[in-house]
Design a protein around this nucleic acid. Sequence first.
DNA 1: ATCTCCAATT
Length: 678
Amino acid sequence: MPQPHAFLWNSIIKGCLNNNDPQEALFMYYKMVVAQAWPNEFTFPTLFKACAVVGAVEKGEQLHAHVMKLGLVGDGHVRSSAIRMYAKCGRVKEARQVLDESREADVVCWNAMIDGYLKCGDVEAATALFEAKEEKNVGSWNAMISGYARCGKIELAEKLFREMPQRDEISWSAIIDGYIKQGCFKEALIVFHEMQNSGARLRKSVLSSVLAACANVGALDEGKWIHAYISRNSIQLDAILGTSLLDMYAKCGRLDMAWEVFENMKQKRVFSWNAMIGGLAMHGRAKDAIELFLKMQRDENLKPDGITFVGVLSACAHAGLVEQGLQYFNSMKQKYGVEPAVEHYGCIVNLLGRAGLFAEAQELIKSMPMTPNAAVWGALLGACRTHGNVELGGKLGKLLLELEPQNSGRYALLSHIYANAGRWDDVANVRTLMKDRNIKTASGRSVINLNGVTHEFVMGDGSHPHMKQINVMLEEVIEKLRLVGYVPNTTQVLFDIDEEEKETRLCRHSEKIAIAFGLLNTSPGTTIQIVKNLRVCEDCHDATKLISRMYDREIIVRDRVRYHHFRNGSCSCKDFCYVHRKVWQHYLKTNCIWGSNLKEREGSEGSRAGKLKEAGGEQLVLGVTIEPGQTFSTDSGVTITISEVEAASTPLEIQEGSDSTSLEPFFEKDNGDLNVTQ
DNA sequence: ATCTCCAATT
């Protein structure tokens, strides 16, 4: 058009923003000025919004100057959007100046300012403003509720939510999402039910929030209900809602459904691919994750971002693909122009650590351009536990207990390392430190959903109404397992108590109780699904493998980091988390002894690694010898060399087993339901 | 005919 009017410019600017291209929107304004069209009060709100999205304060300031020159400072829309722009860029002072610029300011401007204070963490200023202003609308309350929740003041948010004169959809959304952001998923779901009863319409935004809550607690039934609600009401699956949905399915163990949603999504954005890649990674399907990562570039011409690489690298870490992981890590910057951030380094440290490559991991940490955070050191500490590296573990533990004195998980990990090495004095020291600092250990909790009801079991807590029955069942299960040679693996018990007592404690682990409960209350052959807050201990992992075969059940356990699919005696994680064990299993398998069936009677002190050392060169029962220098390769590709064998001391007694555990990779032959390459 | 505050995903 020869002379487009302001209206048309405004429309095209808005169009750019709606298509997720704020930079282009701002560039359009430049063209508009060059074309000598006069911007009006409709032009600036959109532009300020664009600046707020990309954090372009300087451009925002220039626009602000134009607003003043054009005499548009008095317009409410212009001012509120300018306030938001400044506040979102962290410039509260300037935001406040805009508010005070003229005597009269409408409610929307005040709300923007309240929200601005809260976004910058200034709870006092926001509260003062909220209380000083007599004229309030729903938006004022909503801004306070979401802001309080964001700043961790969830009780205050709840109080306002209960007291406010009237609520709209945003009020419900704000409180529900507030709970979720604070990790209170149960409360979020309760309020969501209340919202449904109130007759409020369920919009996309609240549905995505609730799906996130479902994903976190593993509430598959609730998530399915929302999926059905979406279909029933013909709600369009946009990129955000679709991503929330597929993420929920992936995190609730239903990769098949996640994939179906993903494939049928009309609009996919980078974060949708990220969610699917991350889901595959979590389930240990590294090959599929990598295939999808290539597909997004090949078919959609999408550029992977930092989060995509978190997915790809963690997929490699879960599957032990050391070389590929390193290769993708190196290509990030070179090929994709994505600067590795601290979390990417964390992934690689995890990857190297699990493979036992301590020198390489430490070398990498040294080369980091940023200060390594607790997560990076934590990844290395985890590796020390897996490989029984007490020396480094002790040093790192000390560092981490200073860096994150409130993180109970670190104390637990360090105790494990010491306990495995039989250093009970050090275990006691860690315990004392926890006591002094008033740190509570997180108890193991497992959740199982039956017919829409959530049952939670906490370690050592017998408060479930059917506890007696469950205990009987659990004893029966353990007895059956013992008949095929199961022996409790007490190496991860953190107390220096006698073996029998250790075994009793293992039987109180929440996942065992939840599985027994599941066996009692579901029909034969159905899948049992459990969500656990911590990692699964080695003994529970072994026991569950056996249960899956003995009872012919598929058992899916989600732990704090990943999924375990147990079927017919093996697990989809290929025992990667338990390298020690793996060495033994592999070793024993090659020598015709069943791995889960070993029992050490002599030299009960020390870890399996320690025993491996002790046993070096000695004749074992059944006539097998471990030679120093001998290497073992695990199924997950880790090579372990018995080069550190120090002394030949106590011989180990190993009972012969009646059967053999299948060590076949779980998914490689069972890959039909998810054909990424097609 | 257009524009503002408060709510969503990896």
